[in-house]
Design a protein around this nucleic acid. Structure first.
Lengths: 148, 148
DNA sequence: TCTGCAAATGCAACAATGTTGCATTTGATG
DNA sequence: CATCAAATGCAACATTGTTGCATTTGCAGA
């Protein structure tokens, strides 16, 4: 078994999560793991579709939605909403490059800036509550947009 | 001129903001001011439409979008995105009942709980950046969902 | 290796939310 | 009251997300 061509770590993650390992799921999870920031459906679609352009469509629009749903359901991905009201997905296992600091989002140009500040400590929760994720979202206008 | 039927405070706010005072704008701002929580487009539509049901449609769907845009543009209202990805609007002049504390959102049942904790102070921004809004988002599973 | 079945996929159609173009109406101003 | 830009209503369109159903595929067991 030394010559197995290529076992992406995603396959293992998916198998470990107890769901079927399919080409589509591997592709999508790979994309999420490689991404520096959470991706929306459209970005994933064009990224996956564009990569192998030439053959036929790599993944169906609806399938992509369902794959994302399944990844979220089995804990391999997370879903958040961006300021435009669009769902964005990120791999939970991915190195969270953006986990240790706070983000500033310019409502004018849409740009995202990483602030030096550390995220605030999570607040105390009532008995029985379990914390899964904390997001500290700071919005306004960046220096460039403010200058105009 | 003593008998002017009814001058809602919204009219004054709108006039002060320097934009035309129209029936639609007054209605929408009234609704936002009266609301206990941010309202989405659909809620506003049915609320406004239902109130005067009988005559014809009170406000056009598109007009409602545009009125909301204009209220946001002149600073009388604020726009945020809810966890479903839908825009929600609130009057900036309205008593912000939910402004002074942090929210916990259960990713299981979708419920929102108000925590006792105060929101963390906004972080320092680079030169030229202007802060418009801060959101502290805490997610996980609530006691009830966690018990199952 | 083959077979069978539940899960996953692709396709079409639909639903909800938000936007644009344009003709008509209306608020404010002189 | 005359005027004109702004606001409104209507129709059509765009984007994002969902549902139903027939076909394909991963995977477990014979």
């Amino acid at each position: 078994m030394t010559g197995k061509p290529k076992i992406s770590p995603s396959s293992e993650q998916i198998r470990a999560a107890g769901v079927k390992v399919t080409r589509q799921r591997v592709r999508v999870l790979d994309a999420l793991l490689a991404a520096r920031q959470p991706l929306c459906h459209g970005e994933l679609e064009s990224q996956l579709g564009g990569a192998e352009a030439g053959s036929r469509r790599v993944i169906d629009r609806v399938t992509l939605y369902r794959v994302l749903d399944s990844l979220v359901a089995c804990g391999l991905a997370m879903r958040a909403v961006d300021p435009r009201g669009v769902f964005r997905f990120s791999a939970t296992g991915a190195p969270r490059q953006h986990a240790g600091h706070v983000h500033f989002r310019c409502t004018d140009c849409g740009g995202v800036f990483c602030l030096k500040a550390e995220p605030p400590p999570p607040p105390a929760l009532p008995r029985g509550f379990r914390l899964a994720q904390v997001e500290f979202d700071v919005r306004g206008t960046c220096a460039q947009c403010g200058a105009r």
